[in-house]
Nucleic acid binder design. Structure first.
Lengths: 233, 233
DNA sequence: TCAAAAGTGTTCCGACTACACCCATGT
DNA sequence: ACATGGGTGTAGTCGGAACACTTTTGA
């Protein structure tokens, strides 16, 4: 860099600044339905309404770090799958101030560990078809995130972040049926999934949802490839 | 809205604001190669280096409007295909100040009309393989935009925005060869393209690049569908 | 023994791939 | 007449889609 360090922050001095928020669209799966984590907004305006979880971005973090910070605060989890969705920058989107929001969506496992922490923050898991009205443009964000998730699931093996370490094939199928909102043929689904060779079978059966029991599998990250993975949406 | 209008801008008063820029990754096609519009940066720091075209976002416009404003200033064009790429928010990405940039990519036709205006602004079209070093993280933006363009071109008939109203099949093929950086089989390409039924053939031949001449087609927006359009990338 | 979920194989068809020659025309 | 680019058809292969019965086991 060819310019003096003490020039910092002076070049752009007369430019207008705006607030930048990060809002998190957090998906979870409880082995039955795809859910979304929303909470009671804690700040004015619109305090007390249902809202996505968000925060203003801080000077010392980038957008992804901000999202992960929020997620850790609420769920206690680190190493979460989180990706940028898009920005929301309509001039009047937030009546509190001119504020641009960067939507980030995350996929996490719903399990006992984090339920407690989540409740403590006034957060709740809602089924996607029972989602309440959210503040500002947050319903749009959810819609966009779902579209993105579907699109992504068609072409890459996404969604394993929503499952526990060991899972059964019927479990993944239910997950994909939730994502695509349609029934899938189990023979074709299993054939396709297993042909991709990134699942490791164990000899353990999970009998929690049937008498016969279903074999547990785990994701083999070594073998994950980018081969296309096309399911009809 | 349940709160008093005069509360505006007071709710978030103690929050830190940041600068938000929009940077435009502008692709063009001259019937031979895919090009990118870059220009000499006009402001400090790094004044005079090659840079994408950008601007700080204004209070009365959203990110897309900001991008279109920039594009109109430089090229004189309106109604341009422009889409958000992603945001760039690394803390130190801009030595001038903490500044988050929203990358937007655009596809435009290179023709005589706008060449003049472009030159007047110190802007130049570079072939993608002769691209100079750009300031900040702009080379990364270009790389990301190219990846996005390829991804998009695989699944939807994007790229027609880069062609004139009337174009020949060899012309589109060259465009796709540029996007994918590989040769395509003309028989398969034409078969696939025509089977999608969104091209209207005219009886006029363009003889500018061969003696025999190639029929001109136009895009039939009525018939554009979302049917998949898969080319190997 | 029965109910409930897990697991498995085959056929059909559409779509992508590879591949080579004739056509029209200006020079 | 010839060089240059435009235009066309076919056979093979792969993968997705449709489809129904057997297996296991707890109650």
């Amino acid at each position: 860099m060819e310019f003096a360090k003490n020039q910092q922050n002076s070049w752009y001095e007369n430019k207008e600044q705006v607030l930048v928020a990060v809002d998190c669209i957090i998906f979870g799966f409880d082995n039955e339905t795809l859910k979304l984590l929303v909470f009671k907004r804690e700040i004015q305006p619109l305090k007390g309404s249902w809202s996505l979880i968000g925060s203003f971005i801080r000077q010392n973090e980038n957008a992804n770090q901000a999202g992960l910070r929020i997620l850790k605060d609420i769920t206690g989890l680190e190493n979460i799958f989180m990706e940028e969705l898009k920005t929301y920058s309509a001039v009047d989107r937030d009546p509190g101030a001119r504020c641009i929001s960067i939507g980030q969506y995350a996929l996490i496992r719903i399990d006992e560990n984090n339920k407690e922490l989540v409740n403590k923050h006034g957060a709740f898991w809602f089924s996607l078809d029972e989602l309440p009205e959210l503040v500002l443009d947050h319903n749009q964000m959810v819609k966009d995130a779902l579209d993105r998730l579907r699109e992504k699931a068609r072409f890459s093996p996404v969604g394993f972040e929503l499952l526990p370490k060991y899972f059964t094939l019927p479990q993944i199928q239910t997950l994909y049926e939730q994502i695509f909102q349609k029934r899938l043929d189990s023979r074709n689904f299993r054939k396709k999934l297993l042909s991709l060779n990134f699942l490791k079978k164990t000899e353990i059966k999970d009998k929690s949802s049937s008498k016969k029991g279903a074999y547990l599998y785990e994701f083999d990250y070594e073998k994950e490839t980018d081969q296309s993975f096309i399911f009809k949406g």
